[in-house]
């Protein structure tokens, strides 16, 4: 368990890989280990290298929080859609041609002036892939998983979000195959905005519950 893996810790040695590549073709221990594993699994015919590349491309470029932002923007502009989304999220999300692995059983929870929702997976890293993509490192790391359920206000403060004492906080721990997404409140001052403009206000963190949507002022600044 030595430091064979300096990537992805919450304190983020973001420049570690630059060091790894500094010596030309020399591989770090974990790079060599992964390369050997991949060679064996390809050689034995269990995996198709083209499918591996396609998987990476799909989750790096196609699936991401821009999908969830479209869902939120539609819900902000279409009350009937919002009702369908909150009643049975999976088919409502599929109306926008979004869905699939990691989002087979979606639940959307709406923030209100009284209640703020926050999503976590204390046991691993369950996250609604089709709408939000792959989770950020902090979502999968111990500090968030430990404290989202016991100190959500403290966690929110670390994201710069401070809610009134009287605001109720509902924390959703994703312990089964249901996957949660937060429907944030539509920011004031956006009357008459179209869906594309509204979607640009919707951040990934706003759909996890660790953030709030951008405001029109913040976008204009």
């Amino acid at each position: 368990m030595a430091h064979d893996d300096h990537h992805g810790h919450p304190h983020g040695h973001a420049h570690g890989h630059a060091h790894d590549h500094a010596h030309g073709s020399e591989l770090s221990p974990i790079e060599a280990r992964v390369r050997a594993l991949e060679s064996i699994l390809v050689e034995k015919g269990y995996v198709d290298p083209a499918a591996l590349d396609a998987l990476v491309e799909m989750y790096e470029t196609k699936v991401g929080p821009h999908n969830g932002a479209r869902v939120v923007a539609r819900a902000w502009t279409d009350p009937d859609y919002r009702a369908r989304l909150l009643a049975d999220a999976t088919p409502a999300i599929a109306e926008l041609d979004i869905g699939g692995r990691g989002g087979e059983h979606m639940v959307v929870v709406a923030n209100t002036p009284d209640t703020h929702n926050l999503v976590v997976c204390t046991l691993c890293s369950c996250y609604p892939w089709p709408v939000l993509g792959l989770p950020p490192v902090w979502y999968k790391a111990p500090p968030y998983r430990a404290r989202a359920v016991s100190d959500p206000r403290g966690v929110l403060a670390e994201f710069g979000v401070s809610l009134p004492e009287a605001t109720r906080i509902a924390v959703w721990d994703s312990t089964a195959e249901t996957r949660y997404m937060v429907l944030p409140m539509r920011p004031a001052g956006t009357e008459g905005w179209d869906e594309a403009a509204l979607a640009a206000l919707v951040t990934r963190d706003a759909m996890i519950g660790t953030g709030l949507p951008r405001t029109p002022d913040a976008v204009a600044a």
Binding site: V47, D48, L134, V137
Partner: peptide, 25 residues
């Protein structure tokens, strides 16, 4: 909790390969 600004989906190429290998396997 330490959020990372403009976080990439993966932080190293070996992470990409592990992710894809785990799903494909």
């Amino acid at each position: 909790v330490r959020p990372e600004a403009d976080e990439p989906v993966f932080h190293a190429d070996w992470e990409r390969r592990v992710f894809a290998l785990a799903l494909a396997m």
